[in-house]
Write a protein that binds this DNA or RNA. Structure first.
Length: 645
RNA sequence: GCCGUUGUAGCUCAGUGGUAGAGCACUUCCUUGGUAAGGAAGAGGUCGUGAGUUCAAUUCUCAUCAACGGCUCCA
């Protein structure tokens, strides 16, 4: 007999060799039907794994992350089975579960799959799932595994095998399909009741653009049709929030073929959001002891050679223009210009920390396929600043920057993000990263310590640092689930020396400052793209392009409405009058669709009482209010940058 | 940049080997209506661009540009 411990602390004894599936059955038939996979002492295993020692187990259903990922991974195997049945001779690479489904990478020998064929595969998968084939696990020697795939002529699996130690190799077979796989899997294919193959794409083998491109099929699957329907519904909701759609509907930005890809034109409504964000940044930075500067959009090649950016960055800079034998580049970053301002005057320790801020315009020649609405563009306005400080002040300054982030995020109600400590990769010193192993370790430790001290949750990621130092990135997700860095806070121990930046310390010696690069509001482009999705287009009052719409019920009240509108304008409120000869219902509808926060409706009653009827966007009638009262309320809400309640 | 898909009016989209249509938006007129669409008339497109096939191309073929879904990359 063995003792099995459950997550709730309960313990039961079972016969030696019992499987977790049988345990599930012993608890209830319902559970046995729902259970997908199990954890044994924290390791995810097949339900058929015999248990031969005392263990803690957790039975995972669809509701657990482990359940979902196993379910999707098994779905990927079913996809492969369908593909192999449809396109004999196909070779497979890997087919993992991902966040929202699964994919399988394959080499179809140059054949491309059409939409109809994708639908055909989906049908075939459903058919295979209905067969309810069991996933059979088999341990196999490396030699036998190699022989199997040599026979099949599958160089991809052979490549995979080359990296695996003998004795840990397993095959999984369901129906006619056998795959090299570590597992675990669902017990049988019949659990998969609903399948949607979502898209088909190219993907480089091993993620390296120098390698051959494989065909990747994405899909998602569910234990019931109802859940698939809900999933599709959710995707449609997400599309409504897409900043590209909202940006067009709300007149925020546009693109034009003659201007160029990745070069957004900010329309009047978008420009208001930009200006409000800049106002917030100016106020915040002024209070935090920053000084504002303005720098040109271009500079000579020599500066980027000095900074060291050119070799790392040239591919993503617009090509240089040459004048009288001198090359000029459009700036892709503001740092070197700011460094030149630092070195324009002799600096003493008394001048430090020196914090130079600029909403800097940068141009980056991103690859055409990388462009994505406002989130990835070629012309960007960065909420940039560089802090030059002595090493002993570093922690304090770095922490102050983090505090500024938190302050901003609170204003915008940003909660769904991940702080990522981005480190270097020692293997890439001298290539992707400045070759200063000790400085890397030292600064990485400093940053980590600041994060821990400030109690900020974060994840550490290798090989994501800037070339001149480690950084903290704030990661967010777009409506359609793509990940972006919203803001960044970087340490730079390299450029100070490259630019020969110096200050005189207390002992009258020259010293090189550490530099902090920071952009808590990222760029206008990405930040506003993010905010559009975050608010679903419903900006809080202080950010809303049009804050108030004055809606007279008929022409008879136009004069009074005009005077109300003028009083709002005089108070600095962005108000507009809708004096069209339309019915009030129509005016309200149009204003609701434009997501204007406040509507002031004016008819006979309001005119007589020198009042307005207030309607909040999305919330309906909020009753009458005197003009002076609504003026005070609006002004306060704007001044305090209140969020939507 | 690579793989795949798409490209018709300001927007959302029908449609066809014989030089184009709807709804919304726009203009004018009628309507003066109390919390999400009042009515009528009108204007608006060389069907992304260039070449080819054809008696004839918006429709078929190729190239190119752009957007979209991914890969790579990134604020």
């Amino acid at each position: 007999m063995i003792n099995i411990k459950f997550p709730d602390g309960a313990e039961r004894s079972y016969e030696n060799g019992i499987s977790p599936l049988e345990i599930a059955k012993s608890i209830s038939e319902g559970l046995a039907r729902k259970v997908i996979v199990t954890s044994v002492d924290g390791v995810v295993r097949d339900l058929s794994t015999p248990l031969v020692t005392d263990a803690s187990i957790k039975l995972h259903t669809w509701d657990d992350a482990e359940g979902k990922s196993t379910f999707w991974h098994s779905s990927a195997h079913i996809l492969a089975e369908a593909v192999e049945a449809t396109f004999p001779g196909v070779k497979f690479w890997v087919g993992p579960a991902i966040d929202k489904g699964f994919y399988y990478d394959m080499d179809l020998g140059g054949k491309s799959i059409s939409e109809e064929e994708l639908l055909g595969l989906e049908k075939k998968m459903a058919e295979l799932a209905r067969k309810n084939n069991v996933f059979i696990r088999k341990e196999i020697s490396k030699a036998d595994a190699i022989a199997y795939f040599e026979e099949k002529g599958d160089e991809y699996k052979l490549d995979l095998l080359a990296g695996l130690p003998d004795g840990e190799i397993t095959f999984y077979t369901q129906g006619e399909f056998t795959d090299l796989c570590r597992g675990p899997h669902i017990p049988q294919t019949g659990l998969v009741k609903a399948i949607k193959l979502t898209s088909i794409a190219g993907a480089y083998w091993k993620g390296d653009e120098k390698n051959k491109q494989l065909t990747r099929i994405y899909g998602v699957s569910f234990p019931s049709q109802k859940e698939l329907d809900e999933h599709i519904q959710m995707l449609e909701e997400a599309k409504k929030r897409d900043h590209r759609k909202l940006g067009k509907e709300l007149g925020i930005f546009t693109f034009d073929d003659d201007v160029g890809p990745g070069l957004p034109l900010w329309m009047p409504n978008g420009t208001i959001v930009i200006e409000e964000l800049e106002r917030l940044a100016k106020e915040t930075e002024q209070a935090a002891g920053y000084k504002r500067v303005v720098t040109p959009h271009i500079a000579k090649e020599s500066m980027y050679l000095t900074s060291g950016h050119l070799p790392y960055y040239q591919d993503s800079m617009y090509p240089p223009m040459e004048l009288e034998g001198v090359k000029y580049y459009l700036k892709a970053m503001n740092c070197p210009h700011h460094h030149k301002i630092f070195s324009a005057e002799s600096r003493s320790y008394k001048d430090l920390p020196l914090r130079l801020a600029e909403y800097g315009t940068c141009y980056r020649y991103e690859q055409s396929g990388e462009l994505f609405g406002l989130m990835r563009v070629r012309c960007l306005h960065m909420n940039d600043a560089h802090i030059y400080c002595a090493k002993e002040d570093f922690a304090k300054e770095f922490r102050a920057v983090n505090d500024m982030y938190i302050k901003y995020f609170k204003i915008f109600g940003i909660e769904k993000y991940v702080m990522r400590l981005s480190l270097h990769d020692p293997a890439k010193l001298g290539q992707k990263y400045i070759n200063e192993p000790e400085l890397w370790q030292e600064t990485e430790a400093m940053v980590r310590e600041v994060l821990i001290e400030s109690n900020i949750p974060f994840v550490e990621v290798q090989d994501e640092g800037a070339f001149y130092g480690p950084k903290i990135d704030v990661q967010i997700w777009s409506a359609i689930g793509r990940e972006f860095t919203l803001a960044t806070n970087q340490v730079d121990f390299a450029q100070g020396r490259r630019f020969n930046l110096q200050y005189t310390n207390k002992e009258n010696h020259a010293e090189t400052p550490l530099i902090i690069h920071r952009a808590p509001l990222g760029t206008h482009e990405r930040f506003i793209g993010f905010l559009l999705e975050h608010y679903a287009g419903k900006f809080p009052l202080w950010l809303a392009p049009v804050q108030v719409k004055v809606l007279p019920i008929s022409d008879k009240f136009n004069d009074y409405a005009e005077s109300v509108n003028q009083q709002l304008l005089n108070a600095g409120i962005r108000s507009e009058l809708d004096d069209r000869a339309e019915k009030i219902g129509k005016k309200i509808r149009d204003t609701e669709l434009m997501k204007v926060p406040y509507m002031l409706i004016i008819g006979e009653k309001e005119q007589t009482e020198n009042a307005v009827s207030v309607r909040r966007q999305g919330k309906g009638d909020a009753g009458m209010s005197s003009v002076s009262e609504i003026l005070t309320n609006l002004t306060t809400e704007i001044r305090d940058r209140q969020s939507n309640s």
